[in-house]
Simulated scan of single mutants.
Amino acid sequence: MTQNAKETFRSRDTGSTLTAKVRNLSPTMTRSMQRVAEAVAADPAACAQLTVTALAQRTGTSEATVVRTARVLGYPGYRDLRLALAAFAAQQQAGAPAAVTADIAVDDPLADVVAKLAHEEQQTLADTAAGLDVSQLEAAVAALASARRIDVYGIGASALVGQDLVQKLLRIGLIAHAHSDPHLAVTNAVQLRQGDVALAITHSGNTLDVIEPLRTAFDRGATTVAITGRPDGAVAKYADHILTTAVSRESELRPAAMSSRTSQLLVVDCLFIGVAQRTYERAAPALSASYEALAHRHSPVAPTAR
């Protein structure tokens, strides 16, 4: 990420996006760094008052660990993190609305279910947008826009997201295929080469049935893209460009497949719009033709003479 991109990213931070960053990046941290990150996310107002030494003592870590944690969270040093924490605290004191819990109980009225799901999905979208590396997104868009062929890999709920992306790309005249069968995915990946794009969608970052075809495409010289909630996962080893989605809380009645789908669809839509913008002279007529073809599907068809 460029320095300008980092500054823009930090300028959009709020208390909720800090919490999202801690949740997303926690798997990449040591346990001592996790304690620091969890402490500042849980109580930004109190931590904003602490020196680096005091925060280290509060979390049972070292000053070096506090500084490293600040850098992992996207700040040049602890001073910058501390200033951000003070801003978060000011937001809270200004009367920012309390978050609605998204934990859905078995006996919740449907009205509460609607409110909780709406809140959680809005937060997931905001967290994903705040954490999306625009330079990586631009590189992925450029590769897709100029690709000879595009293969998309996904399993389960991620397969549905992949199909959504492919049908959009097809409507603007690109050659794209969605593969949810791991065997077909690998056998098709073997045919890819330089100038092609392979895109893998895996929330965990460790789905073997998705990683294997991406690795195959990577070895064949295709440009590879990963949409994942775990940028430290195994999929990253074979991805030229990584687009990170927010990691939402999982609960008994709201599995990861539901929460990850929302953020994945946002990234897919960003990719599609970016590609359509870059290929507008070709995309616009293709879209018009597809709209016209579909319009006929909704009109009565006159019987043909025999």
Results as ranks from 00 to 15, higher is better:
residue 20 A to V: 05
residue 188 N to P: 02
residue 40 V to E: 08
residue 73 L to I: 10
residue 256 A to L: 13
residue 283 A to Y: 03
residue 68 R to E: 11
residue 82 R to N: 14
residue 209 D to V: 07
residue 103 D to A: 11
residue 153 Y to S: 02
residue 229 G to F: 03
residue 2 T to F: 02
residue 257 A to P: 03
residue 134 V to C: 04
residue 151 D to H: 12
residue 123 Q to I: 00
residue 155 I to K: 09
residue 47 C to P: 02
residue 29 M to T: 05
residue 278 R to N: 08
residue 14 T to A: 09
residue 108 D to V: 01
residue 306 R to M: 06
residue 247 V to F: 09
residue 251 S to T: 12
residue 219 D to S: 13
residue 301 V to L: 13
residue 73 L to M: 03
residue 73 L to N: 04
residue 31 R to G: 09
residue 128 T to R: 01
residue 233 G to V: 11
residue 67 V to Q: 13
residue 42 A to Q: 12
residue 10 R to E: 09
residue 260 S to L: 08
residue 295 A to D: 15
residue 253 L to A: 11
residue 26 S to P: 01
residue 291 Y to L: 14
residue 162 G to S: 11
residue 252 E to S: 11
residue 191 Q to P: 07
residue 32 S to C: 05
residue 6 K to L: 15
residue 58 R to V: 09
residue 152 V to R: 00
residue 33 M to E: 15
residue 80 D to F: 07
residue 101 T to N: 13
residue 151 D to C: 13
residue 90 A to I: 08
residue 26 S to G: 11
residue 281 E to L: 02
residue 234 A to F: 07
residue 222 A to H: 05
residue 97 P to G: 08
residue 88 F to S: 09
residue 61 T to G: 06
residue 137 L to Q: 02
residue 109 P to V: 00
residue 127 D to K: 05
residue 1 M to N: 07
residue 71 R to V: 15
residue 280 Y to Q: 13
residue 143 A to G: 01
residue 120 E to Q: 12
residue 132 L to F: 06
residue 73 L to W: 05
residue 168 K to T: 05
residue 214 L to G: 06
residue 49 Q to V: 03
residue 36 V to R: 03
residue 62 S to G: 04
residue 237 K to F: 09
residue 270 C to K: 10
residue 173 G to H: 02
residue 9 F to M: 12
residue 166 V to D: 10
residue 18 L to E: 10
residue 281 E to V: 08
residue 111 A to M: 07
residue 263 S to A: 15
residue 230 R to K: 08
residue 18 L to A: 10
residue 104 I to E: 07
residue 289 A to H: 06
residue 283 A to R: 02
residue 81 L to M: 12
residue 195 G to S: 04
residue 124 T to D: 07
residue 209 D to F: 06
residue 174 L to C: 10
residue 144 L to K: 00
residue 245 T to V: 14
residue 241 H to Q: 03
residue 107 D to Q: 11
residue 169 L to G: 09
residue 21 K to P: 08
residue 302 A to Y: 01
residue 157 A to M: 10
residue 198 A to Y: 04
residue 45 A to C: 01
residue 149 R to G: 05
residue 190 V to S: 10
residue 55 L to C: 04
residue 223 T to A: 03
residue 279 T to Q: 09
residue 85 L to M: 14
residue 204 S to H: 10
residue 163 Q to C: 08
residue 147 A to F: 01
residue 257 A to I: 02
residue 247 V to Y: 02
residue 163 Q to M: 08
residue 298 H to Q: 12
residue 110 L to Q: 06
residue 93 Q to N: 10
residue 98 A to M: 07
residue 48 A to L: 05
residue 250 E to P: 01
residue 211 I to D: 06
residue 150 I to S: 01
residue 216 T to F: 07
residue 186 V to C: 14
residue 154 G to S: 08
residue 96 A to V: 13
residue 65 T to R: 04
residue 301 V to K: 12
residue 193 R to P: 04
residue 136 Q to G: 02
residue 209 D to I: 04
residue 235 V to H: 01
residue 201 I to T: 02
residue 198 A to M: 02
residue 63 E to A: 13
residue 159 A to G: 10
residue 233 G to R: 07
residue 111 A to K: 00
residue 217 A to G: 09
residue 212 E to G: 03
residue 108 D to C: 03
residue 261 R to C: 12
residue 217 A to N: 10
residue 99 A to Q: 15
residue 202 T to V: 01
residue 258 M to H: 09
residue 59 T to W: 02
residue 148 R to I: 06
residue 96 A to Q: 15
residue 87 A to S: 14
residue 199 L to I: 00
residue 58 R to Q: 14
